[in-house]
């Protein structure tokens, strides 16, 4: 019924059940998720070498197709692809045909005519990566680098990779995600990844206008007061709060949001001793998180960035390694 199961309704997998595209964490098998994380461990060491490159994707061409600005995600994907020796074409759609009215699929068909092997796509509308994957089938791989408010699977992978590496087994963590859950593809993806890996307690925290009670349907505990949500948390994940949320009357002001929910040293002290602090970036210092916490000893925000590179290398090499792109 849901269409999000493994098989027909899940365009991430081919008919043989092999992962061909990475579109969302939801619907990903645990074994595939673990393989990505384990492969990422191997890539982590490569950044320490004199030559930070492997020949894995030599001769392949990947397209960074970004319909939304994002320096960070675009550059980590670019670096990941280049470290795997792939050629990378960066297309910022804001300066390209998209503004001339060309459709997403026409843009992609034009690039396919140049024999590219895969697309890393970011798009402001939910489902854009699914649309692309359905259109391309096994002709090229698709990695969703963020589609509207729907999914951002590589972010979730690097987040659980960071938790697993620095906090310990996911099965033993109490994770509290705070901020604008409603508009966050990062939060949705992370919740699914944590659930698949058996996280026993996921809490979400924020005002009802940004964290509606319906979030309980995702299997998380919904909280609107940090004093309920933080005690015992071993991982605290602060989400970026966007200014548009005030214009849509979901918040009276950023100051008031900080007053109620901002992650300050005092609030962090409510969590378990030594709890890790994560943030997907870019950070609004003094809004969802205070500078003292960002730069404090419990913050692993920069480790997330480093891990993001290894995780994206793992994803690209695993997807590109599934046969069929060549002959």
């Amino acid at each position: 019924m849901t269409g999000l199961r493994f098989g027909d309704g899940n365009p991430q997998y081919d008919r043989q059940g092999r992962l061909r595209h990475l579109l969302s964490i939801e619907g990903l098998r645990e074994i595939d998720l673990l393989q990505i994380l384990d492969t990422a461990e191997s890539f982590l060491g490569i950044a320490q070498r004199a030559i930070k490159k492997t020949p894995t994707l030599r001769g392949r061409t990947l397209v960074n197709l970004f319909f939304e600005n994002s320096t960070r995600t675009r550059s980590t994907f670019e670096l990941a692809a280049k470290r795997l020796s792939a050629d990378v074409l960066n297309i910022a759609a804001s300066q390209s045909s998209a503004t001339k009215g060309e459709s997403l699929l026409d843009t992609v068909d034009n690039l396919m005519a140049m024999q590219v092997d895969g697309f890393i796509v970011r798009h402001p509308e939910a489902g854009a990566a699914h649309l692309l994957a359905r259109h391309l089938g096994d002709r090229a791989l698709v990695v969703n680098a963020g589609d509207g408010q729907h999914a951002h699977p590589t972010q979730a992978l690097l987040d659980v990779f960071t938790i697993r590496r620095l906090a310990g087994p996911v099965e033993q963590q109490v994770v509290c995600i705070l901020g604008d859950l409603l508009h966050s593809r990062v939060a949705r993806a992370l919740i699914h990844a944590l659930s698949i890996l058996g996280c026993p307690e996921i809490r979400v925290l924020g005002p009802r206008t940004l964290v509606p009670p319906e979030f309980a349907s995702l299997g998380v505990q919904v909280h609107h007061d940090p004093r309920d949500a933080l005690p015992g948390a071993s991982v605290v994940y602060a989400l970026r709060l966007q200014r548009e949320r005030m214009e849509s009357h979901r918040l009276p002001s950023l100051d008031e949001f900080h007053r109620r929910f901002g992650l300050t040293p005092e609030r962090l002290a409510l969590a378990a001793p030594g709890a890790l602090v994560l943030h997907p970036g870019p950070i609004n210092r003094g809004v969802e998180i205070g500078s003292a916490v960002v730069d404090g000893p419990q913050s692993v925000i920069l480790a997330q960035v480093e891990h993001g590179l290894a995780v994206r290398m793992a994803v690209l090499s695993l997807l590109a390694g599934v046969g069929g792109h060549e002959d």
Binding site: Q35, D38, T39, E41, S42, F43, L44, G45, T54, P55, T56, G59, R60, L84, S317, L318, A320, G321, V322, G323, H325, E326
Partner: peptide, 23 residues
């Protein structure tokens, strides 16, 4: 050394399901 990422038959058979870190 795990040479998975350096194999010349990568494009035909893909990654070994179990890749270990080279050290």
């Amino acid at each position: 050394l795990d040479i998975s990422f350096y194999r010349d038959d990568f494009s035909r058979i893909g990654l070994h399901p179990e890749v270990r870190a080279s050290r």
